[in-house]
């Protein structure tokens, strides 16, 4: 009994540094933010202690905020669908390729993971505008007659967002594909199923869990980011993340910034719970 207790004490001691970091620098700030979101915000002051639902009311009634929440969800859904589709096709091809191709393609897929988001933004920032590479390439090929710019469009924002989330989706799905017996595909083909039927009846059910995890990963990430859409997208593309930053650093309205953050926290939690509930019982994947 005492040996057992001593073991538990050692375990707690070992866990202590990690728990201190998580509880003090994540748990405490989250509680602090939750409380802050109910504080008052009179003019010219960061915040005044109090209790009001005013900020949450504003989030639900002010068209700027409801619009931003809607934009964020819409952007996250669309970018995640695109990411999962591209990532799925990419992972499927890499899975089917012979090994020497595989290593090369995995190396390419690692690139966006290793490069800072700011460097990625800047890379696309030089590609899309009037004097950028895209315009120059199309002009020299004679495909367009005048300089064109895709900068500050929703398309540019999507290209950037998908770029950042693609590797996560790819690696999650590739690990799922690697667990599948390849002979299943051959068997299905030998039994006379055309590729599309094999895909629908064999591959899709086997990779369902991976698809779910990849989608929710990508959704959570896209929902929380603001740098890529605000740097590449149009000026009106206001996401919740962008408004948090604006309220905090620009307008110094702490309670409202906190309330917006709580919306993001709840959004992440909702996606995680939803993914868990959609997952088959036996799957042991952690979301």
């Amino acid at each position: 009994m005492t040996a057992q207790r001593r073991k538990q004490r050692t375990a707690l001691l070992l866990l202590l540094p990690a728990l201190v970091i998580v509880l003090i620098f994540f748990g405490l700030p989250t509680i602090f933010m939750a409380r802050m979101s109910f504080n008052l915000h009179p003019d010219q002051r960061l915040f005044v202690p109090g209790f009001t639902f005013e900020h949450y009311g504003a989030l639900l009634s002010n068209p700027v905020f409801t619009g931003a929440i809607w934009t964020t969800v819409k952007l996250a859904v669309m970018a995640s669908i695109a990411t999962v589709v591209i990532g799925y096709a990419f992972a499927l091809i890499v899975w089917l390729k012979p090994p020497r191709w595989r290593l090369l393609l995995i190396g390419v897929a690692l690139c966006p993971l290793l490069i800072s988001e700011i460097a990625i933004i800047f890379g696309w920032w030089m590609f899309f505008p009037k004097n950028g590479l895209l315009s120059y390439a199309l002009l020299s090929l004679g495909l367009v007659n005048d300089k064109i710019s895709l900068m500050y469009t929703e398309f540019a924002a999507f290209v950037g967002l998908i770029y950042v989330t693609l590797p996560y989706c790819f690696f999650i799905l590739l690990s799922i594909f690697d667990g599948i017996d390849r002979r299943l595909i051959e068997a299905s083909g030998d039994l006379g199923a055309p590729p599309l039927t094999t895909f629908r009846e064999v591959l899709l059910p086997l990779t369902w869990t991976g698809l779910l995890v990849a989608f929710s990963q990508s959704f959570i990430w896209t929902m929380g980011t603001y740098a890529t859409p605000s740097a590449l997208g149009p000026d009106t593309l206001w996401t919740v993340g962008y408004l948090i930053q604006e309220q905090m650093l620009g307008k110094h309205n702490w309670p409202l910034a906190a309330a917006l953050s709580m919306v993001l926290v709840l959004g992440v939690a909702a996606v995680m719970v939803l993914t868990r509930s959609l997952m088959p019982k036996r799957a042991s994947y952690h979301v």
């Binding site: 994540f26 700030p29 933010m33 959570i220 929380g224 980011t225 993340g241 930053q245 953050s261 926290v265």
Partner: peptide, 17 residues
């Protein structure tokens, strides 16, 4: 859990606290 939280939320929380 912190791994799934957006950077803007973590940064804001720590800056405020």
């Amino acid at each position: 859990l912190p791994l799934f939280m957006p950077g803007v939320v973590l940064g804001l929380g720590i800056a405020m606290t």
